[in-house]
Amino acid sequence: MIQLTINGQPRQFEAPINVTQLIDHLALHGKRIAIECNGEIVPRSRFSEQMLAHGDQLEVVVAVGGG
């Protein structure tokens, strides 16, 4: 069991997962998003190779209206 913090919310997973699996889990596949893990950008090209570890802090962002 690993715990990740995603956008400030704790989430448990049965086994280690990579970023692509996380995106599928969050139903964000195909969405325009960007992801930061522990303060570092995870490039889209590395989503499937980047494994997430217990305690990782993730930020998943989108563009919204703003001035």
Partner: peptide, 11 residues
């Protein structure tokens, strides 16, 4: 046009 960057709604 300007846009803001915000956390997406999870789940």
């Amino acid at each position: 046009i300007t846009v803001a960057i915000r956390r997406t709604n999870i789940g």
